[in-house]
């Protein structure tokens, strides 16, 4: 904010980067290097899961980040209904898009982990089932956001869906416990896994790496969404001028 070389007329670059994103980008590079070093090299293989435990250092942070993004969508949706905020509308949409991508990868990496561990890519386990449903529900949310409708109306409707959809997040988060309490069966859970220090470090680094990456990505993706919004707005100004010109071409008083 206190730069010296900033000229009086602000120079906004022709991309979505800024000092903020460069700082975040640097943090991403550092955390990712450390995370991959620990996760893939320094930490030992698991006694039970062997090398495939390393998938967890990717899988779990992404799962948690997708819950974070859907929470941002929830907050954004509430703000849209409260005051019609454009910022929060765009933020809600952007967060959901990133969340769906993360969740898709969570499901994919989970399947890849399941094959060597359970012997199958897909298991009708409560966590998997609810995660798949959550994926579909938020996919529906993204479809609503792309409907050809008045932007204000669409923002409000998407917001309602964004709030209703959030029920899936706690449902998925606690699915194992919910079904456990219902069925009194034991499911493989993370707490059973013996974790040594390096494994724990790998987890922590994975969380840090994914969190900084999410922050970096959110800023860039939001700026793209804002640019699209600005394009629509400036396009609208032109359409209004054209529309008025169309009226002026018809001499007033002429009934056609």
């Amino acid at each position: 904010m206190t730069t010296v070389e900033m000229p009086p007329a602000r120079s906004v670059p022709e991309h979505t980067g800024s000092r903020l994103t460069r700082a975040l980008g640097g943090a991403v590079l550092v955390t990712w290097t450390l995370w991959l070093l620990w996760g893939l090299v320094l930490s030992p293989a698991d006694v039970v899961q062997h090398e495939s435990v390393r998938l967890f250092y990717l899988h779990v942070p992404m799962a948690i980040m997708s819950s974070v993004t859907f929470s941002i969508t929830l907050i954004g949706s509430i703000m849209v209904l409260r005051n019609g905020s454009v910022f929060w509308d765009l933020m809600a949409g952007v967060a959901a898009e990133i969340g769906v991508m993360f969740l898709g990868l969570v499901i994919a990496t989970g399947a890849v982990w399941g094959k060597p561990t359970w012997g199958t890519y897909w298991e009708w386990d409560p966590r998997l089932t609810t995660a798949a449903l959550m994926f579909l529900v938020y996919l529906g949310y993204l479809v609503i956001r792309r409907l050809d409708m008045d932007p204000v109306v669409r923002a409000r409707r998407a917001a309602v869906f964004g709030i209703v959809a959030f029920i899936n997040v706690p449902l998925t988060r606690f699915s194992v416990q919910i079904w456990n309490s219902l069925h009194q069966e034991t499911t493989i859970s993370l707490t059973d896994t013996q974790m040594d220090g390096a494994q724990l470090t790998s987890y922590a680094l994975g969380m840090l790496a994914m969190a900084t990456f999410l922050a970096w990505l959110l800023v860039h993706r939001f700026r793209v969404a804002w640019l699209e919004h600005a394009m629509d707005e400036s396009g609208l100004e032109k359409l209004i001028r054209d529309r008025r010109a169309e009226g002026a071409a018809n001499e007033p008083g002429g009934v056609r």
Binding site: E14, H15, T16, F87, R223, L227, E228, A230
Partner: peptide, 22 residues
């Protein structure tokens, strides 16, 4: 995402590009 940002950014005047000043 970065590519889309660049293409869109070029089509807009500088004052329209950002939600906030940095």
């Amino acid at each position: 995402t970065l590519r889309r940002g660049r293409t869109l950014s070029r089509q807009l005047d500088p004052e329209q590009r950002r939600f906030l000043d940095d």
